[in-house]
Nucleic acid binder design. Structure first.
Length: 894
RNA sequence: GGAGAUAUAGCUCAGCUGGGAGAGCAUCUGCUUGACGUGUAGAGGGUCGUAGGUUCGAGUCCUAUUGUCUCCACCA
């Protein structure tokens, strides 16, 4: 046993231990081994971080939670698999690579598809590894041997398989529909990727002249005047009396010379704006629907980069906002601009680049959602899928019930290319795993593959089973699937969780996990989102560097309930670091004392396993406490209450174990003659080991380091067994007795503090009680009062013989404690203190008496509660009598 | 426009199925006791947003109301 450093120094230890775990393959889960040994599987799939990403606080929280659950289950004897990997992050990566190329003066188009993809793979190689290394720093016990990538062979095969199955089932189709277009990324994006943002804009009121009725106009209001170029109608509500006569008439569309009809459509709100709506089917989702109903032409007026595409007009080639300005000017000149009204409205922006999305009609691939959404809705309703906290189930349902078809094609190169091939001879389209040899329709042999790739989330939706080998029937899939818990932030429910659920149900017939554990965002100390633009992000690696991974992990978990956001404070990291140091020092203390321990005796105790060990009252008490703690922590971890479980082990170690038990035990350790010394050492070591194990999932490094220095039987705490509740360690009576001792000690300390007695001044302590049982407890406990209560001597008696009249006193349940402080005593002060105590007791008694004399309470409350109150009544009555007696005595003297 | 969350000590937050209000930090006062000052012993500080209701009993359940936050939504 080596002596530990005075302070815990994580940086020297963490990398070394992590390497040891890797070398010993402790993180590796094996289906065969699990089956052979009859173990139950426990599986978590890691939300794959983007290969563009750097570890941020969100990852740190997410992965800490997963690591805690995995380590807990592994110790419990499950074959625990934490399946890791990375995501190709189509748009994000493509943008990054393009930027990088630009800085080198290279254009994406010049490279060509193949060349560009090569650059993307280079990126993946470099940066995919970076984030994984950063996850190592956190202590993540994922099975890195199984690390996967959404574009590796297996995952790509799964994508192909699913695409083809869904296409054949009619769930995937290609169609020309209105989609969200990002003019910067130059790709379509799904509804989920559009963020709505309230912006201050204007309503431009414009007159459209009515054909054949000189001087008569229809006034429309628009927030996007430039789309006027694509108008193919103006709509009014069929019920609107104001415009009854207009329906069917033609209007002259300003600036274009085109004529467009007035149509009647329910979609128009009479109350809003002027009641007349310009209809631009190619550039507005509502107008698109209106256009379909009235058979209107769809005129696309924009290029992919959102510049105007209207050859022959002065606006051709202008940016959309430039064109807007120019057109408004021109309308003004024509006298057709009625007014401009400030108006705030929602603008859709691309969540990646924040560019204002342009709705466009384009041929795209879609997944039909109606049928697939149903089982996913059922899963949550029947409880097959649980979301923690439950309230997020509503968010989930609400979204699924209003779901629209999912646009899955992207005009990108980095991603899974859509497996659709068009015959160059007859135009027949085939969906197949590879390029077809011959066209079944015309016999042609020239095919061209669809240029588009799939939405990133199409492949991540398959993650829980594609990583386990699906569609092959692998042993892993059979054993580890469905997985158990999915841990993620609420911001990703729509993108990922829901899509995994319906994909899993559709492809495997099983919900991919039974529980979704949701966490919130880690915000800065002012409650703001951490973001690059604000520059308020805190780098987890910096925290690890300064305070250690354990401290970071603990900080992220303490006081955090599922689904709630939290704020990051450096002070809290400090507190976590202090706790690690506390555990370290408690261990250091124990190990220092064990060096001088009678080894044979300790070994004998170890064999007896606590059954026949001559333990003293406090030994039994702390053993009983740690036993109860094991049960409570297991319960809370099973409920995913990670924060509560951590709070419990923290309180136990710091307060019960360090501040009370260790202090109580010191006199026994210092006295080498003490026959209970070995029992104390055995208890210290045993309880420490139990505590370390319970703490290990949270603070893997410091617990491992101590564990390995403390004992020689086991090589690692992470593969040791999780403490289970044991009946033979339940000592209810001793727990009660120590509570009495603690009450007495606190009373003594209180009195001393209020009298400003320095610890150096020891005092004689008298304990007086009429209860033989109480006296007996104190007789066994004299030794504690020397250290805990600064006692020079403890006298236990059933009367007040020999006690100075002016001794200071404190009343506890069923006993009074006296300390003769002679010259220090101030009777007036003493009276004041007792008076205060009397007031407190009076209040308590009034409450208890009130309850017990309430006939309705007595008749309706559960018996246990009534008995509890009766016991309190007795206790307080008895204490009151003592206080009053003491008061009378002192008043007489004063 | 819908939906959800939240309101508890100066600050940040816990408080599970209703049974005498908790933690960390901050503040104040002690302590060079042989693990730890990254420590230790104590103290002060809360009408648990407001108003009703259910109950023997409500921070906890219900209703309304106010404030804050978030998500969803095609009002041009």
């Amino acid at each position: 046993m080596k002596e530990l450093e005075k302070n815990y120094n994580p940086s020297q230890i963490e990398d070394k231990l992590y390497q040891k775990w890797l070398d010993n393959k402790y993180f590796h889960a094996d289906a065969r081994r699990g089956k052979r040994e009859g173990k139950k599987p426990f599986t978590i799939v890691m939300p794959p971080p983007n290969i563009t990403g750097q570890l941020h606080m969100g990852h740190a929280l997410d992965n800490t939670m997963q690591d805690i659950l995995t380590r807990f289950k592994r110790m419990q004897g499950y074959e625990a698999l934490w399946q890791p990997g990375t995501d190709h992050a189509a748009i994000a990566t493509e943008v990054k690579v393009i930027d990088k190329l630009k800085s080198e003066g290279i254009d994406k188009q010049d490279l060509g598809r193949e060349g560009f993809l090569e650059k993307c793979w280079d990126w993946k190689k470099e940066y995919g590894a970076r984030i994984i290394n950063q996850l190592h720093k956190l202590g993540s016990s994922a099975d890195w041997e199984r690390e996967r990538f959404t574009m590796d062979k297996g995952c790509s095969d799964a994508v192909l398989e699913v695409f083809i199955k869904l296409y054949e089932k009619g769930y995937i189709y290609k169609g020309s529909r209105i989609i969200n277009w990002c003019p910067v990324c130059k790709t379509s994006i799904s509804d989920a990727e559009v963020e709505h943002e309230e912006q201050n804009g204007f309503f431009w009121h414009i007159n459209y002249p009515i054909v054949g009725e000189e001087g008569r106009y229809v006034e429309i209001a628009t927030t996007r005047p430039e789309t006027l170029l694509g108008d193919t109608a103006v709509a009014v509500n069929p019920e609107d009396e104001r415009y009854q006569d207009l329906v069917g008439k033609m209007l002259e569309l300003p600036l274009t010379g085109r004529q467009i009809p007035v149509v009647a459509d329910e979609y128009v709100d009479k109350e809003f704006g002027t009641g007349c709506v310009k209809i631009t089917p190619a550039h507005d989702p509502n107008d698109f629907e209106v256009g379909k109903r009235h058979n209107l032409e769809e005129i696309c007026i924009m290029h992919d980069d959102a510049t105007i595409d209207c050859p022959g007009t002065p606006y051709d080639g202008m940016d959309r906002y430039e064109a807007r300005k120019a057109m408004v000017e021109d309308l003004k000149k024509l006298g057709l601009l009625v007014k401009i009204v400030p108006h705030s409205h929602n603008v859709g922006t691309h969540d990646r680049c924040k560019t204002t999305v342009e709705p466009m009609v384009k041929p795209q691939w879609f997944v039909r959602m109606e049928e697939m959404a149903k089982p996913a809705i059922e899963a949550i309703k029947t409880g097959e899928l649980k979301i923690v906290p439950e309230s997020f189930g509503k968010t989930y349902l609400h979204w699924l019930e209003g779901i629209r078809d999912w646009c899955i094609s992207r005009q990108l190169w980095w991603g899974h290319r859509i497996p659709a091939y068009t015959c160059q001879d007859c135009g027949e389209m085939l969906v197949a795993k590879e390029m077809p040899g011959k066209c079944p329709k015309c016999g042609g042999v020239h095919f061209r593959q669809d240029e588009d790739t799939l939405d990133t989330w199409f492949s991540s939706a398959l993650w829980p089973f594609s990583t386990l080998g699906w569609p092959e029937k692998t042993e892993e899939l059979e054993y580890f699937y469905p997985t158990d818990v999915l841990v993620t932030g609420y911001d990703i429910i729509f993108f990922w969780v829901i899509r995994m659920v319906f994909s899993g149900l559709e492809q495997t017939g099983k919900c991919p996990f039974h529980t979704v554990l949701i966490h919130g965002l880690v915000r800065d100390s002012q409650g703001r989102k951490m973001s690059k633009s604000l520059g308020n992000g805190i780098d987890p690696l910096e925290v690890i560097d300064k305070y250690g991974a354990d401290a970071l992990r603990m900080t992220l978990i303490t006081g955090n309930a599922p689904g709630n956001d939290m704020r990051f404070y450096w002070e809290r990291v400090e507190n976590s670091r202090n706790f690690a140091n506390k555990v370290w020092n408690a261990s250091r203390f124990i190990m220092m004392n064990m060096e001088k321990a009678p080894l044979e005796q300790m070994k004998a105790y170890d064999l007896a396993d606590g059954k026949a060990v001559p333990l003293t009252m406090p030994d039994k008490w702390i053993l009983s406490k740690v036993n109860g703690l094991a049960r409570e922590m297991t319960e809370n971890l099973d409920k995913y209450e990670l924060g509560i479980a951590l709070q419990k082990v923290y309180d136990f170690i710091w307060e019960e174990f360090c501040d009370w038990y260790i202090e109580m035990v010191k006199p026994r350790l210092w006295n080498e003659e003490d026959e209970t010394r070995a029992a104390a050492l055995w208890t210290l070591k045993t309880v420490l080991i139990q505590s370390l194990k319970l703490l290990h999932p949270y603070m893997p490094f410091v617990t491992e380091e101590i564990f390995c220095n403390l004992q020689e039987e086991e090589e690692s705490i992470m593969i040791s067994s999780w403490p289970e509740y044991r009946k033979e360690w339940n000592f209810a009576a001793e727990e009660q007795e120590v509570e009495t001792i603690k009450e007495a000690v606190r009373a003594i300390r209180n009195v001393r503090t209020s009298m400003n007695v320095p610890p150096s001044r020891k005092a004689k302590v008298y304990v007086v009680s009429q209860e033989e049982k109480i006296l007996e407890i104190f007789r066994h406990s004299k030794v504690f009062f020397a250290t805990l209560g600064f006692a020079s001597e403890v006298c236990i008696q059933s009367d007040k013989n020999q006690i100075a009249e002016d001794a200071v006193s404190a009343v506890i349940s069923q006993a009074t404690i006296y300390m003769p402080f002679a010259e220090l005593v101030d009777i007036a002060k003493e009276l004041e203190r007792l008076q205060k105590e009397k007031e407190r007791l009076t209040k308590e008694l009034a409450r208890v008496n009130g309850m017990l004399s309430n006939e309705r309470f007595v008749s309706k409350a559960p018996e246990a509660k009534i008995n509890e109150e009766k016991a309190k009544q007795e206790k307080y009555t008895q204490m009151m009598a003592q206080v009053e007696e003491r008061l009378a005595q002192l008043q007489q003297k004063a």
